[in-house]
């Protein structure tokens, strides 16, 4: 190593600084008071690994939740003869499932090997279960939408049309079942990990993700012009549950173990998301500003998903959160 290599230069700088000030600030340098490290754990290094997931995953959580719960609304709309609403909701679900698959494949380190996801069926892996839920959901939604469209357009008559009607009914009902799981399993996915701020809230996460999905689906359908009372009622319900979850999250604190939820930028994302989906959406709906409430809920649901991934990154990089979580 030559004397003008970067590390040697840095060493010289540190020596000069130490000589002048007696203290050297900066990463990994703790010479004040001696060589004994005072950072938590091993030089403050993370104990568990923070998630490697990038922007695709929070958007997938948002789109998947919306898509899954759209199918639930579609099946109720079919049952109660809101055919127009059922069509829009099924289109949302179908576009959502395609977008979800694209986002999931994009996030893989090796997208060309995505098909390996379907090699095994592992009930103990929430990721494996999620892939299968998405697969079955897609297998119901896309043919369900085609059958529904063919039936409503009356392209066929007689027995063929009857068959399409039954097929649409069965497939839309199937979409609803897998759709609710698609919207809620994501909470299990991040709740059953080694990241303290996530696993400490494994009960809240599926409730939050499911409710956010339901409210987003109702909200987006309202923004598409379906201003009907049942969707407003669903919007009220989702905003009320989100408000309750905000209270739960505020009360259920675990100190250093989940401080990523209450501090840092990640904490702000969570708070902003929860206020938009909870109290704000609720108040706007109470005063009859339905489109604004729907819009606030959608933005909040998206921000909150980014918030939870950010929480995982902060909590996973914080050794103290892991040590503190072991008390719970």
């Amino acid at each position: 190593m030559t004397s003008n290599s970067p590390s040697e230069k840095r060493l010289e700088e540190l020596r000069e600084q130490a000589w002048k000030d007696g203290v050297v600030p900066g990463k990994g340098v703790d010479v004040a008071g001696g060589p004994i490290p005072r950072k938590p754990g091993y030089y403050g290094q993370p104990v568990v690994k923070p998630p490697v997931w990038t922007w695709e995953i929070p958007i997938y959580f948002f789109v998947g939740g919306l898509s899954g719960m759209s199918a639930v609304i579609a099946s109720a709309a079919v049952l109660f003869h809101h055919v127009d609403l059922a069509r829009t909701a099924m289109w949302l679900a179908a576009i959502g499932v395609i977008l979800s698959s694209v986002l999931l494949i994009m996030d893989l380190g090796r997208p060309h090997l995505f098909i390996n996801m379907l090699r095994v069926f592992k009930h103990q892996s929430a990721m494996s279960m999620g892939v299968w839920i998405l697969t079955f959901f897609g297998a119901c939604v896309v043919p369900g939408l085609i059958a529904l469209e063919l039936h409503t357009l009356h392209l066929f008559t007689g027995a063929m049309d009857q068959l399409l009607r039954i097929a649409a009914g069965v497939l839309i009902f199937g979409s609803a079942l897998f759709g609710t799981l698609l919207a809620t399993y994501t909470g299990v996915l991040i709740g059953a990990t080694a990241i303290p701020a996530w696993f400490l809230h494994r009960l809240l996460l599926p409730i939050h993700f499911g409710t956010a999905g339901l409210g987003s689906a109702a909200g987006l359908l309202e923004l598409f012009g379906h201003r009907i009372a049942p969707l407003n009622a669903i919007g009220f319900f989702a905003a009320a549950v989100e408000s309750a979850l905000l209270v739960w999250l505020t009360i259920d604190k675990h100190g250093a173990a989940d401080r990523a939820i209450h501090e840092h930028g990640s904490g702000w994302l969570i708070r902003v998301g929860e206020i938009l989906t909870g109290p704000l959406a609720l108040v706007l709906r109470l005063f009859g500003f339905v489109p604004f409430a729907a819009f606030a809920f959608l933005v909040g649901a998206l921000v909150s998903r980014f918030g939870w991934i950010a929480v995982g990154k902060v909590s996973g990089s914080d050794p103290e959160s892991v040590f503190a979580a072991e008390r719970y």
Binding site: A76, T180, A183, T184, G187, V188, L204, L205, I207, G210
Partner: peptide, 27 residues
């Protein structure tokens, strides 16, 4: 982390059922 699966899935299934019931009740 698999020890957390049971409680997390319970919350997920409860939410799934509650969502379906809420939607049906709303309609």
């Amino acid at each position: 982390p698999t020890i957390y699966l049971k409680s997390a899935w319970t919350a997920a299934f409860a939410t799934a059922i509650a969502s379906i019931i809420t939607t049906l009740v709303a309609f």
